[in-house]
Nucleic acid binder design. Structure first.
Length: 720
DNA sequence: AGCACGCCGACT
DNA sequence: GTCGGCGTGCTC
């Protein structure tokens, strides 16, 4: 009898996307556990591939029918005894890949950083007796008594409307504060700290055996970091942090995914008020591989709160009790690497697998979440007696009477902003950075174009050298080709332009500009006018005194399937940066969207939008698969789908994407057929990849794959 | 991806 | 008869 390791190969080839069996030599048998990295021979003995062990069995347990009948090769090398691939992450990767007709090892590349020796050594040398600090339960505030907590405890799922203003978050005022300060290593009596803080008494606490009870626990290594005082954080961040703290107080992990780096910072600030730093691990794009590896290993050691951007949803958090997303409609959640699975979808798969609770927290509702709400799969939770933004739409009017000197800002909004600017900062949201749309000749008004590529010229700062917006070439000494004049002036309104105008209108007020190239995280709660492009709005402790949303009309003029929900999301998120109940002027917008904002019923447009898309068979009412490849392969794949698709197949149409002669088609299908459709398409990809190969023009060249499949890419619909 | 296997044209 | 062309298919 011998030991057999079942491994997943680190290969992007779809035909290798299954488990392979290898014999485990006796010398490494003890360390060859699920999750470790190994090197194994593949095909010819000399050729090695990296792999992860996902299962270890004894060879008499192998069934002759289901398993490889031939002679097994032998594991070449145990790369490291550290199990970096948690079993549940493997299960997740497998399911996520299957859902997307993709390859599991592609998903693993997102979930597991490359090998890092130093963090692994540190982890192997860790203090096994170390007991992580406890977490004091704190209520999730603003949602009615224990409403959110009971969803978490029951492993439920909810779409949560975020608290639409900043909140002042302070540490729970009980037990743990003394516990940390009072340098008393003898923590005998803190077994029921929860009694002191009145969490819902009727929830039977799903605590999976409070392990840290064993008596001979050594003194805590160091006292917890000094507790931060009350801190202003966005309402959503407080909710996520409190929900995570509640989960962690039950010794279960929470995974919190947010769109970008700034959100991670906000969330971390909130979390550190409630939870010891040791219990918080980060996963984000700005980390080095070493930091990610360290975070990954920490997350496997004891229950933690894993926070971060897209990568966080793959965190190997032990005893997962909660998955929460902030602002699932943000396009940053769309993964850029194969198999392009959206964080929201990963979260859904992981919730289903783990039984963890799921919270989708946002101001504006995405059509995707709306669909789940209408299915009854997510329950709706809203803040209890929240002070919603006082949104005042000012419908578009061309009559100059209604406007002050600055033609973009109606006089009512202008007055309000001026008044508010005495008390605190005023936020002015615009759609474009810099000077907006471009530069024109001061003499003849001709648009200035790049001499290199013909693209439009822009001016990033007042008076700076004009620069091409497309190719970036500097246009020093520009002369108008029409009239020979050498002076240019900006047209359109960007953040800088607006700021310049406002600077003249608010002579004694500080003007701050924040955009993508000049990001500002926070401005003080002092009088100022803050001009920011959408998404770059700085935070203010306590919130802005007034918010002006200026370029809505222009933002809505863009083409695309998701423009409306995107714009609503951008408005709502800016509005929520206002202080509780602060006025928000929505300039130039009327109709349904203005209504939804004014009533703060951001689910209504999502419902209407979804209804429309059902009729048209547009996502997310249906799922889509984009098929690219040779005419024959694409047509064959469509045929193989039988009658699973709904609505007409779009295409195939010729595209030049990888090579001329390629075609693309889009098929739509109901969610209920997803598993079947993905499996069929994956089989087609495998069939084609092991067949097609092309010799071109005498020189051997690798041809583009005969068939590529991408599931749930809504991009093509943005042109519709 | 590599690399072996295998079934048709010019060769000692 | 055989050598070797690269299309086809497999990799525990």
């Amino acid at each position: 009898m011998a030991t057999v390791a079942r491994v997943v190969l680190d290969s992007p080839l779809p035909q290798l996307d299954r488990l392979f069996d290898y014999r485990v030599p006796a010398e490494i048998e003890d360390d060859c556990v699920p999750g470790v990295r190994v090197r194994v021979p593949l095909r010819s003995g000399a050729r090695m591939t990296d792999a992860y062990v996902v299962e270890v069995v004894s060879d008499d347990a192998l069934s002759p029918e289901n398993d490889f009948p031939g002679e097994l090769s032998v594991v070449e090398e145990l790369v490291s005894p550290v199990p970096v691939l948690a079993p549940e992450v493997w299960q997740l990767a497998r399911a996520v890949a299957d859902r997307a007709a993709g390859v599991a090892s592609d998903v693993l590349r997102l979930a597991v950083p490359t090998r890092q020796v130093r963090p692994e050594k540190a982890w192997l040398a860790r203090d096994l007796d170390h007991v992580p600090p406890r977490v004091t339960p704190a209520p999730v505030e603003g949602y009615g008594d224990a409403v959110v907590e009971s969803v978490i405890d029951a492993g439920g799922r909810a779409a949560v409307s975020a608290i639409p203003h900043p909140v002042l978050l302070s540490a729970p005022t009980t037990a743990v504060a003394d516990d940390g300060a009072g340098a008393d290593p003898d923590d005998t009596a803190d077994a029921d700290t929860s009694a002191a803080t009145g969490t819902s008494p009727d929830t039977p606490a799903p605590a999976p055996a409070p392990a840290p009870a064993p008596a001979p626990a050594p003194a805590p290594a160091q006292a917890p970091a000094s507790e931060p005082g009350p801190t202003w954080v966005p309402g959503w961040a407080a909710t996520l942090a409190q929900a995570a703290a509640h989960t962690l107080a039950g010794e279960r992990s929470a995974v919190l995914a947010v769109p970008d780096f700034r959100d991670v910072a906000d969330l971390e600030r909130a979390l550190l008020v409630l939870v010891p730093a040791e219990r918080v691990v980060r996963f984000d794009a700005k980390q080095t591989n070493g930091q990610r590896a360290r975070a990954l290993l920490t997350a496997r050691t004891h229950p933690v709160v894993a926070i971060g951007s897209r990568a966080a949803v793959y965190a190997p958090a032990s005893e997962l009790g909660l998955i929460a997303l902030w602002d699932d409609g943000d396009p940053s959640f769309a993964e850029q690497r194969a198999p392009y699975v959206h964080t929201r979808d990963v979260a859904l798969v992981r919730t289903a697998q783990s039984g963890a609770a799921l919270l989708m927290v946002s101001h504006a509702r995405s059509t995707d979440v709306q669909r789940l709400v209408e299915l009854g799969w997510l329950q709706e939770i809203g803040p209890h007696r929240a002070r919603v933004p006082k949104v005042i739409p000012t419908a578009h009017q061309t009559n100059a009477d209604g406007y002050a000197a600055q033609a973009r800002i109606p006089s009512s909004a202008w007055r309000a902003a001026r008044e508010a600017s005495h008390d605190g900062p005023v936020l002015v949201q615009v759609s474009n950075p810099g000077f907006g749309t471009g530069l024109v000749c001061t003499e003849c008004g001709e648009r200035a174009h790049c001499r290199v590529c013909g693209g439009p010229l822009g001016s990033p700062h007042a008076g700076s050298t004009p620069q091409c917006r497309f190719c970036g070439a500097l246009a020093a000494g520009y002369r108008c080709p029409t009239c020979g004049n050498g002076k240019l002036k900006p047209v359109g309104q960007g953040a800088q332009r607006t700021a310049d105008e406002l600077g003249r209108a608010f002579p004694n007020t500080r003007i701050v500009v924040a955009d993508g190239s000049r990001p500002i995280d926070e401005v003080p709660a002092r009088p100022a006018v803050v001009v920011a492009t959408r998404g770059a709005e700085p935070d203010v402790p306590g919130g802005y005194a007034c918010v002006l949303l200026l370029d809505g009309e222009r933002m809505l003029a863009r083409e695309g399937l998701r423009v409306q929900e995107d714009v609503l999301r951008i408005w709502a998120n800016a509005a929520a940066k206002g202080a509780a109940g602060a006025p928000v002027y929505l300039v130039g917008i009327g109709g349904k969207l203005a209504n939804a904002m004014a009533l703060w019923r951001l689910d209504v447009p999502a419902h209407e939008e979804l209804t429309d898309r059902r009729e048209l068979f547009f996502p997310p009412a249906v799922r889509v698969a984009t098929l690219t490849g040779t005419d024959e392969a694409v047509t064959g794949a469509i045929e193989a789908l039988g009658d699973a698709p709904v609505g007409p197949v779009l295409g195939p149409v010729p595209v030049d994407d990888p090579t001329p002669g390629t075609v693309r088609a889009i098929v739509r299908f109901p969610y209920g057929h997803g598993t079947e459709v993905a499996a069929t398409l994956k089989a087609e990809v495998i069939r084609r990849s092991s067949t097609r190969r092309v010799v071109k023009g005498g020189t051997k060249r690798r041809a583009a794959p005969a068939l590529r499949v991408r599931m749930d890419d809504a991009e093509p619909f943005s042109e519709v």
